[in-house]
Design a binder for these strands. Sequence first.
DNA 1: TTTT
DNA 2: TTTT
Lengths: 155, 155, 155, 155
Amino acid sequence: MAGVNKVILVGNLGSDPEIKYLEGDNAVANFSIATTEAYKNRNGERVEQTEWHDLEMWGAQAKIAEQYLKKGSQIYVEGKLKTDKWQDEQGQNRYRTKIRVLSFTMLGGKPDGATSGSPSATPQATQQKPASAAPTAAPKAQEMVTDAEDDDLPF
Amino acid sequence: MAGVNKVILVGNLGSDPEIKYLEGDNAVANFSIATTEAYKNRNGERVEQTEWHDLEMWGAQAKIAEQYLKKGSQIYVEGKLKTDKWQDEQGQNRYRTKIRVLSFTMLGGKPDGATSGSPSATPQATQQKPASAAPTAAPKAQEMVTDAEDDDLPF
Amino acid sequence: MAGVNKVILVGNLGSDPEIKYLEGDNAVANFSIATTEAYKNRNGERVEQTEWHDLEMWGAQAKIAEQYLKKGSQIYVEGKLKTDKWQDEQGQNRYRTKIRVLSFTMLGGKPDGATSGSPSATPQATQQKPASAAPTAAPKAQEMVTDAEDDDLPF
Amino acid sequence: MAGVNKVILVGNLGSDPEIKYLEGDNAVANFSIATTEAYKNRNGERVEQTEWHDLEMWGAQAKIAEQYLKKGSQIYVEGKLKTDKWQDEQGQNRYRTKIRVLSFTMLGGKPDGATSGSPSATPQATQQKPASAAPTAAPKAQEMVTDAEDDDLPF
DNA sequence: TTTT
DNA sequence: TTTT
């Protein structure tokens, strides 16, 4: 029963996070990151291999992602694998694996477009975001952002 | 472009490894392991959540897996995520994520059926395995088994 | 400022945990685990290299360690590095690095001496342990044991 | 006997790497990186805790470190713990723990002073470096740099 | 000794 | 499909 299910990634966002606000001031963010590996093949040629990973963040994390992460951002991510399995209309098994993020941190220098060097410089409000989600004393994405709710919400 | 793509698992095999021997004395092993997480829900009830992970091992690793791992074995695994994407007959995107194992080690005490405490005590030959695959000086699964070919074969 | 400080170990206890009970029902457990690596040297001889790691656990974790872990137990550990630095009487810098455990889980089959297969079968009370530390509904060490207090006590 | 001894760090160099060239074109690089953790204490005040880690790299890795890493660089590091133990003149046990780096990658955008965005743009030769160490087709530090020699040199 |  |  003892189990360890851990994923560690360093990669770049393929697009801005997509965030959905749910009842009770909850939120989910979804986005993909690419990890690229370079190696030499048998002919000594350099080859690049890119792998895409679907990430999912919940709650405060999602809101921070919305504020600070965007297409191209480089992040360190720690999470766990979750595979959804269902049957399609043809009765065939379908699978989709994503990484439920437990903590992440932004890497690299100032985010692009930041003027002061602080990532909190440009918290862009979005129409879609209800007032209650206003980031009062939000941590910054350059600190480790952990998922407080993981204990009782392991979905 | 810098990338890290790392998975760390501790879990139990759901079935014996399936091994396929390929041309040139190469081999692949496939099997799944379960990681189980226990937590308390909002009502204070204990809930278990099991996640299944599809593993793939190549070369010498695959042969060691065949020899030493079986249904129920507990292993520590380190690897990387690889997602296959293709289109089915309906033209829909299909995905399947597996873990390409880079190293693993057997956990726990003596493997079942071992008399001396050494896992190398019972290298059972199988019909399916060609002679060339005979484990001459095979490492044991209770040591760390690494994938020597990973450098130029990152498929 | 973004930082990651993570240690992952699988090893065996060199001795029973030493536990100290502190004011306010707090507790610390200290013990070492060995990780052994086997490799072939230039002459093709098999060499074993053992590394010892000093672990420190706090609070409920420490109590669980006291209950379930003993000399020889195999565990998976996740934690962070902490180095104490001080000056000795000669004014020389002295260093000691330990791993502050954030979560751990027992590996392998039934713990030695367990009759029913449940590790909770033998919660041995010790003289040294104050009554208040009695494990009412203690988690088992074969589940992942996490350090709830890590957030505001990162010493 | 199965063992896992793994360290994962993301931090910043406290100083330029110190490299020593040895016989046979071998080389070692030593330097420290800081990992900083921020948390709120009981009074709700934000506290920062910095941990310093001593890293050691060998061979080609050391040469790449010399070329591309400098004070302040942010890196992702994977390695293993190694503790030296000896007795000082007073006969007391002394310990020093370092991380033997197995792979690393530079994080963040273009290195400071790079014009083209390629870190290989400024391979500064140093007096101390023998000709044989000239980086002919050196990997870049923004790719994963692995320690090829680890298999038979686990010191 | 770094970084924000 | 595992394990406790």
